[in-house]
Design a protein around this nucleic acid. Structure first.
Lengths: 209, 209
DNA sequence: GTTTTTGCACTGACCAGTCAGTTCAAATTC
DNA sequence: GAATTTGAACTGACTGGTCAGTGCAAAAAC
């Protein structure tokens, strides 16, 4: 059948309801968790009939899985863009990391609910969407690992660093700091938070000045 | 009648079943989440009848809340102990932070399921145990903030650092690195992971050597 | 005229919490 | 020290409610 032959958007109407459903689902699931969120709630918040949910997604879990893919896709693209931009501008790998920290903060600032939901699910086991989550996580972390590895190769970073672990630690630093920011001191500016994390990254907290 | 007169522990039998229930609940909830975990499952894994769960805890949520309090209590005590130990040994605040990173890793190594569950719930809103979680979180983060603040006061850390945000970032760094360690490269040694994080803390990745 | 959405009644599985009854070790009595 | 009592701890079948997912005819959108 191939309803709306390729192009790019897909039939707009359908895409619009799917988007509404994503938005409704993301906040509800972030607040309450997947199992505590009912399909009726999602439909209601999206302003759509329950049948529509099932017309657009095979099941509640599938809706959630596609939501995950969608969200992490945005993040990955944004990280990659930040890294490439600094490269084009002739910045070093430290600048790339710094730009990625900012990109991460911007993302979390714009999609706090998604971030929250992602963190809540990431280390779970025995869940239906486990494998989707792994794939999608790896895509995002790989961008950070790539920059670190290039930095080691060109001598900008110490050869002693453990690339995957350091990448995870950096992601964690940004993630937790940002979630705390949003949850407990939302009045602060992004620049402010970025400056604090930059300082930490460059070891200007302890050690050398 | 006072079956087993006071002393201190409380009736041992009861305490033992509660412990079994904690252990059963912590792994199940870490794997599946709170709502997806049934009381029947918890009871079964603890090798106890469902009624016993309700004999020992007012409800499923209360069981979970007490579990949270119990677990974070252990963590806080361990962090505090690490900080005090380095102070006694005449170490500086950097040593204290480093010791706390290790204490955090040791905790996560021993109780990975608890950590996972804690992270998954920490930034949720609209949940029954929200306030418990806040209290308990603050206790733990306060220990890190305390050390940072003392370090700023005695000139060991830059006055420019943002104490609460840096504390959150440090906690995040350890948390995420450790969860990744346990999930994706569990064969690595604690010392190894600790060394990588130490290096990052002291800015020996980028910037000065 | 085809695709998408609606509204709504329905089903069947699942699950938190209850409660009447059982177990058993320690305390009490004789 | 044997017989009896006590009560905390535990048991598991049962209940009332909830919820994912279905089915479908009619309406709306394109």
């Amino acid at each position: 059948m191939e309803s709306s032959s390729a192009a790019s958007g897909g039939s707009t109407r359908r895409e619009a309801t799917r988007q509404k459903l994503y938005e409704a689902a993301v906040t509800l699931i972030a607040e309450q968790g997947f199992s505590a969120t009912t399909v009726d709630e999602i439909a209601e918040r999206a302003g759509v009939a329950k049948g529509t949910v099932y017309y657009n997604f095979a099941s509640k879990s599938v809706l959630f899985e596609e939501l995950l893919r969608h969200g992490v896709g945005l993040l990955t693209a944004s990280l990659r863009e930040a890294a490439e931009r600094t490269a084009r501008d002739g910045g070093g790998k430290v600048d790339a990391l710094d730009a990625m920290i900012r990109a991460g903060l911007v993302f979390i600032d714009r999609y706090p609910a998604f971030t929250q939901l992602y963190v809540a699910e990431l280390w779970r086991t025995n869940r239906a969407w486990q494998s989707t989550l792994m794939v999608v996580r790896q895509e995002a972390v790989a961008v950070v690992e790539g920059v670190l590895r290039e930095g080691v190769d060109n001598g900008e970073f110490s050869e002693e660093i453990d690339v995957p672990l350091t990448a995870a630690a950096l992601v964690g630093m940004v993630l937790v700091a940002a979630l705390d920011w949003k949850s407990f001191q939302p009045e602060r500016s992004l620049d402010d938070v970025h400056a604090a994390l930059s300082r930490l990254l460059q070891g200007r907290v302890s050690g050398c000045r």
